[in-house]
Design a protein around this nucleic acid. Structure first.
Lengths: 144, 144
DNA sequence: GTGTTTGCAAAAGCTTTGCAAAGTT
DNA sequence: AACTTTGCAAAGCTTTTGCAAACAC
């Protein structure tokens, strides 16, 4: 709890109860939740926190680099608390978004962009999107 | 014009005037337009085509593999008529989405996934997203 | 002629806003 | 005390829907 407070303070954000609850909720959610999923996940324990606050707070976190947005093709905002370099697996049949990271691939891509030039662009980050179907929707996707 | 008709017929879609106009509009638009941008681009020449039709038609095209959706973090749908394997450059200051393709990178990534396994997933396609800032928003991004 | 597609207007879903009250430092 | 954040309800977008009329084959 005090860690969250520190995290907020270091971004010069006031450590309100709402922000702590919401930050905790996104951080512990590994499915790249929508605003509504975050809201629902805290609602029972915090019936007083409004949906509008969840909207505003998540955007504030993004602006301050505490979390990121994930791209989707569905026209819905989804958030990601994993700040490390990583890609995503988009599961076309279950709609899940699963983190993907591979040390070797990361190296390969970084090396590649050392040799290629993109003029007039300052690259902020690069991510790989894998689209696929879960063969058995009940089972997990396992990356080896 | 007859090419569009053929394209539609080969997907077993009736070649209506609306579909031809909309398909032509997405195909000639390189900026990965939103629904509204497609609508605006045809409106003057085709005041009778309704926004609802543009919505429905673009989704029909995606379902039939004539175009694709592009992922965004803004919670808006955007479309792409480039069907080849390629990635995107997301320009954080201008909001443009620019196609990116490199033969070598494509090879490297394909080779990589021949050696790595992702269990329980059937990969449909892989794309690379580059996020960055245009240094001079007036100039084009040039990929060398 | 049969079945599909369109336009309209209404509804539904997602997100933002304005402002007074409450909270943080 | 000064300034920021919250909740509410309303407004603003984006997208979908139901259905009768129009259209393609």
């Amino acid at each position: 709890m005090n860690q969250l407070k520190q995290l907020l303070s270091s971004s010069k954000l006031k450590a309100t109860h709402q922000r702590m609850v919401i930050l905790e909720a996104v951080k512990s959610n590994k499915v790249h939740p929508t605003v509504d999923q975050v809201y629902e996940s805290i609602r029972e324990a915090n019936p007083g926190i409004s949906l509008a606050t969840v909207y505003k707070t998540l955007e504030t976190f993004v602006e301050n680099g505490l979390i990121n947005k994930v791209s989707t093709t569905e026209g819905l905002k989804r958030y990601d608390s994993n700040l490390g370099a990583h890609g995503h697996i988009y599961c076309l049949n279950t709609n899940e978004i699963i983190d993907y990271y591979d040390e070797d691939l990361n190296r390969i891509i970084i090396d590649f962009f050392k040799t290629k030039r993109i003029n007039n662009l300052k690259i902020k980050n690069i991510s790989l999107n894998i689209n696929g179907d879960k063969l058995d929707p009940a089972k997990e996707v396992i990356i080896k």
